[in-house]
């Protein structure tokens, strides 16, 4: 494990190297263009603003400059899901059947396993624990719990699908792929409990980026996912380099 972390850090170095050399390439280009660039409107659009790069002081920060940012993003979502299912599994709604109780126990352990996996994989790069806000969920109501579970699972699928393309380490990409299909299995099951047969009703998922005509599931970029998830999080989540 430790070795793997070290290997990852070393692999990450050339990536950082690219980040440092890229502005140089840009500079040589801009040196040339800058001579009388004011005349070119399109180039002028490039002057509009500087990208904010300073980390915020409070809360947690997801820095998407490299794979660790993506993994921390996943870690944040898994923290949220795990906290939700721990609460459900510890005191299920009275309307849950024995089978449903058992399966929500299962899901609880899956989300805990995902959360702990990211924590270990990230090691010292991991963000801290998030404080959750489930005040909008009635944990005594089967309907409320299933509705929230469905929202979490569908959003989780959308999040992993939408962020996969940012991963540069093939092993982390694969790990994310191993998790997202389990989230999709959860989503399928929970949806079937809400309305039997709605396991893959893509028409109801278009707001999350699904496309029924293409048979495509939800996919959202982090800037779209975080505001939705934010409803359930008290801790301030800062995002940089997205």
């Amino acid at each position: 494990m430790k070795n793997l972390q070290e290997t990852k850090t070393q692999e990450a170095l050339p990536e950082n190297g690219n980040v440092f050399t890229a502005p140089l390439q840009r500079r040589s280009f801009l040196q040339f263009a800058g001579a009388s660039a004011a005349a070119v409107a399109l180039v002028a659009a490039g002057c509009k603003k500087d990208r904010p790069n300073m980390p915020m002081s409070s809360g947690v920060t997801l820095d998407f400059k490299n794979d660790f940012g993506v993994l921390n993003y996943a870690y944040a979502l898994e923290q949220l899901e795990a906290a939700f299912y721990i609460q459900v599994a510890s005191a299920p709604p009275s309307g849950f059947s024995a089978n449903e109780k058992a399966y929500f126990q299962d899901i609880q352990f899956h989300e805990i396993a995902h959360r702990e996996y990211f924590k270990k994989a990230l090691s010292t790069a991991a963000i801290g624990s998030l404080e959750v806000d489930f005040s909008s969920i009635d944990f005594t109501s089967r309907t409320s719990v299933l509705g929230a579970a469905m929202a979490f699972e569908d959003l989780g699928v959308a999040a992993y699908n939408g962020v996969g393309v940012r991963l540069t380490d093939v092993n982390f990409l694969l790990a994310a792929g191993k998790i997202v299909s389990v989230e999709a299995r959860h989503a399928s099951y929970v949806r079937d409990l809400v309305s039997y047969g709605s396991f893959a009703d893509l028409n109801t998922l278009t707001a999350l980026g699904a496309n029924n005509a293409g048979g495509l599931d939800a996919a959202l970029t982090p800037d779209k996912v975080l505001p939705i998830a934010g409803k359930y999080v008290k801790t301030k989540i800062n995002v940089i380099n997205l």
Binding site: V157, Y160, N161, G164, G177, V180, S181, V182, E183, A184, R185, A187, S188, R191, F199, A200, L202, G209, A210, N211, G214, G215, L216, D217, A218, A219
Partner: peptide, 10 residues
């Protein structure tokens, strides 16, 4: 990935 998770739902 979008196809992959639909297959998982199936």
């Amino acid at each position: 990935l979008q196809i992959h998770s639909v297959e998982a739902r199936h």
